[in-house]
Design a protein around this nucleic acid. Structure first.
Lengths: 347, 347
DNA sequence: CTGAAAGCGCTTACAG
DNA sequence: CTGAAAGCGCTTACAG
């Protein structure tokens, strides 16, 4: 059952069937109403269904947006984290009349439980090409794959800022720099004059954004900027010695890169017979991946996940339609969520 | 950049390139190792990427499974309900090396905010055909579309039992009948001898399954079966008169079709100066769509959503591979979650 | 207003 | 072991 059968049944050529079934504004074909009716009748009678793959190959519209993540899109332990992005993506995509292609397979034919994760170029071919463009998000993507994606000019947008040396990547990110500045201002406003920063051991894009926000915030508030108050270490590496040093130097508040860092800091304080926020205020800068209810006690940053998903779709569609030039790079404002762990200093 | 360019660069025909890039067991083409190497080199050098759409049209594998729901897949108010299904689907699909196609658009070109929802056949064409097969779930699907899907022998599996007059539908469903029987047994075991049933006004497949379970459960426990103890009404239509009648007839426990029914019943009891479970035990048979924490107080049925998603993928793949004949119809066991609203009768 | 033909980029019998 | 050719089912200039 193909277009040809319909054409034959309606006594027209396949060109006419195509024109009737996919009306284009500036088509070179104009069909008489009664002819169009004959075609529709034949379609009905035969139960003809166009082959979308063929249509796509012939240059018709695909209207398919890819979603790629290196880990499962629906992880059980991060449901609350991922869900809002997907919700925003679906909302954006539905409005635009696109379908969503979730790249869930590893991409190669290997089916066993090999440790290998998902790949964009599993066997040399860009799997994403099945879609018109793609949104990438989640864990740290493979930079070499991103580089290749840019090189072949495949339209894509990442959620979260990514940088590669070989070019510019379109992204929708949370405005962590401003959010961190706000957090510093929040602490300063409560009377904290000496604020330290507990950062990632190996800072990536978003961590550097936050560090910049830290310095900018101190600057704006006219507070002391000491480079040894910015610690870069894994949560487990924070020890009593470092903590005591900071306290001895008059630090009354710490901004931490993650909830894990905050919890580590609290544990160390506890070991010293101290507590949060009585002896030290702690503000958390990143939205924890897990988003568990117990994280709500921390004064923290909330990122606009749903809006980010929607904006990523918008940016990608702009790119596809030629309404925007690559790269499209936007940051969306975050919200500071004051809670119990940041209070005025004891003094 | 196509296969032809690679062929030219490697000094071979496109057939050889194809054979090298998509090795098949019983291919009619055998390529010398050094020729294959030349092809691979050319691919590398030119950065060639096969066009998956063309490959698909030419008969290559698609390895795409569709997911269709009439409402948004990522609804904000039902996140907890939908998520486990998706999680199970992704798990099943990833293992099999398939990608997932989410039909999020309405399907027609209309982009505005017309009230129209999603359709499988928006303009006569089966949109799902882009995928090898599809999983349907969520709200009551359009029966005429299901009928058409069956008629054209498109491979699909619904999550939740569906019936149409024109044929058989493959499904993975929760074993509501057994679960309801278990609930009756649970009540009977606690000493309830007269158990009523508050059902849907317009029962569909799953509701009828539960009603059957109710009768079977009463039968098995040797309890009174009175047809006027099975009420079919909207939650709002339950009134004090009906409730008083049941109580007067010695009913000490009610099974309800939904959490809404249970809450309505409790409200009516309250109006009579009575309470749950002191004066009447209530067991809820359906997993509420919303799955809010406050529903946990009800003694209720838990359906294996994640497993259902995974099983749906398995069934669909069996269908596609010809390992199973259509229809594949499986029910998965539910769990009874005893809680505070079903207690021994007062007597 | 309509039709014959080329082309999208692959795969796959079929001859050499 | 290799290549020329047809074909998958559409769309789209291009002639009539």
């Amino acid at each position: 059952m193909t277009q040809r059968d319909v054409a034959r049944a309606a006594g027209v050529s396949t060109a006419v069937v195509s024109a009737v079934l996919s009306p284009k504004k500036n088509s070179s074909i104009r069909v008489a109403p009664e002819t169009a009716q004959r075609v529709h009748d034949a379609v009905q009678r035969l139960g003809y269904v166009p082959n979308l793959v063929a249509r796509s190959l012939a240059g018709g519209e695909r209207r398919l947006l890819g979603v790629f993540t290196y880990e499962p899109v629906f992880p059980s332990d991060r449901a609350n984290f991922f869900y809002p992005f997907l919700l925003g993506i679906e909302r954006g995509v539905e409005r635009a009349g696109y379908d969503l292609l979730l790249f869930t397979s590893r991409g190669d034919e290997a089916k066993g439980d090999t440790a290998e994760g998902r790949k964009i170029y599993p066997s040399g071919a860009n799997r994403l090409r099945l879609a018109d463009g793609a949104i990438l998000f989640g864990q740290e993507p493979d930079k070499s794959e991103l580089t290749r994606l840019v090189a072949e000019e495949f339209p894509f947008v990442t959620i979260g800022r990514r940088e590669i040396s070989a070019g510019q990547i379109s992204y929708i990110a949370a405005d962590y720099a401003s959010a961190t500045r706000d957090m510093v201002a929040h602490c300063a406003g409560l009377g904290h004059a000496r604020i330290a920063y507990l950062g990632e051991k190996d800072p990536r894009e978003q961590h550097l954004d936050r560090e910049h926000g830290y310095w900018a915030g101190l600057e704006a508030a006219g507070l002391v900027q000491r480079h040894d108050w910015l610690l870069r270490l894994a949560p487990g590496d924070l020890d009593a010695a470092r903590m005591s040093r900071l306290r001895a130097e008059g630090v009354t508040a710490i901004l931490t890169e993650s909830a894990a860092h905050a919890e580590a800091a609290e544990a160390v304080l506890k070991g010293l017979g101290l507590s949060v926020p009585k002896d030290l205020s702690i503000g958390v800068l990143a939205a924890p991946m897990e988003d568990r209810p117990e994280f709500r006690r921390w004064t923290r940053i909330r990122i606009p996940r749903e809006k980010m998903g929607e904006a990523a779709v918008g940016a990608l569609l702009d790119l596809l339609a030629g309404r925007a030039a690559s790269p499209v790079q936007r940051v969306l404002p975050c919200t500071l969520e004051p809670s119990e762990t940041v209070q005025p200093p004891a003094i």
